[in-house]
Write a protein that binds this DNA or RNA. Structure first.
Lengths: 143, 143
DNA sequence: TATTGTTATACTCTATAACTATA
DNA sequence: TATAGTTATAGAGTATAACAATA
């Protein structure tokens, strides 16, 4: 069992450990769908807004263009994402029927996951937490 | 610039993004010392408690035994950590003079980093935040 | 037998550099 | 020239499996 130590005094340390545990749990739940967390995030973003480009998705999720290429290619190869007619070099992306279904399923898993980890917190604490966390990253989020 | 999207409704998403930004900043600060975040964490843990084994350090930081081996080997090769006489296969570890200095310096950077990101929060919010975050990971922390 | 240390290996995420194609 | 997409490559963290050495 892990004992407390020096680093417990650092808030950032708890942030890192918490994120690690929470993300590992989400990854495990999504693995049942054959999706990694990044792939699921892409499907969910596309579920809510179609015909955006892979670069645009990358911008929203802070995934670099170079890393989006193989991600999108794999999702297209699996028949989850479809490319529309190019505008310049950019392709508007949409979800296939299969992609929509899988995206919705991923979203359900995410919601349950989030509720399991944070649902027991009072709503005001939830809001405060989101306020603190989102302020931490929104500043640096111009990737 | 990044726009809000579907995933904003998930607290875990903000947790992940925040951790990512905060850790990237820490990594950048520590790179000036020639340390990665994991290496710095090891030095800081050893600063506070000497003569523990690498497996024990791994247990506290949730770093697997197999991954501790090359980490410790590199720190020994750099003359930062010294192995004591083995007890069975286990070696009690201590910091060299150089390791102590570097560990202290790393700790200072970590403190400044933490203060920069969280120091502006009211103390009661800091405590509440640590409470929430530490509860999230302490359950699953039996690595 | 249980624990420590080690090696090999693989996966995921992230990062930069350099290139092509198109508006 | 700026943006989109691609490829290659590397670094960092994490994971499992298998093995040797020692109490």
């Amino acid at each position: 069992m892990s004992r407390p130590h020096e680093l417990d005094a650092l808030i950032g340390y708890h942030l890192r450990r918490a994120s690690s545990v929470v993300m590992a749990d989400l990854a495990e739940r999504l693995s049942g769908l054959g999706l990694r967390t990044t792939e699921a995030a892409i499907l969910v973003v596309l579920s809510a807004e179609e015909n955006i480009t892979q670069s645009e998705i990358g911008r929203r999720l802070s995934i670099k263009r170079a890393n989006m290429a193989p991600l999108i290619a794999a999702l297209i190869a699996r028949g989850l994402i479809v490319r529309g007619k190019p505008i310049g070099r950019a392709h508007p992306l949409t979800l296939s029927r299969k992609g929509k279904t899988l995206g919705a399923s991923a979203r359900t898993h995410m919601d349950e996951h989030d509720a399991d980890f944070f649902g027991n917190l009072p709503v005001d604490q939830q809001k405060q937490l989101v306020g603190i966390l989102s302020r931490l990253w929104r500043h640096e989020a111009d990737a």
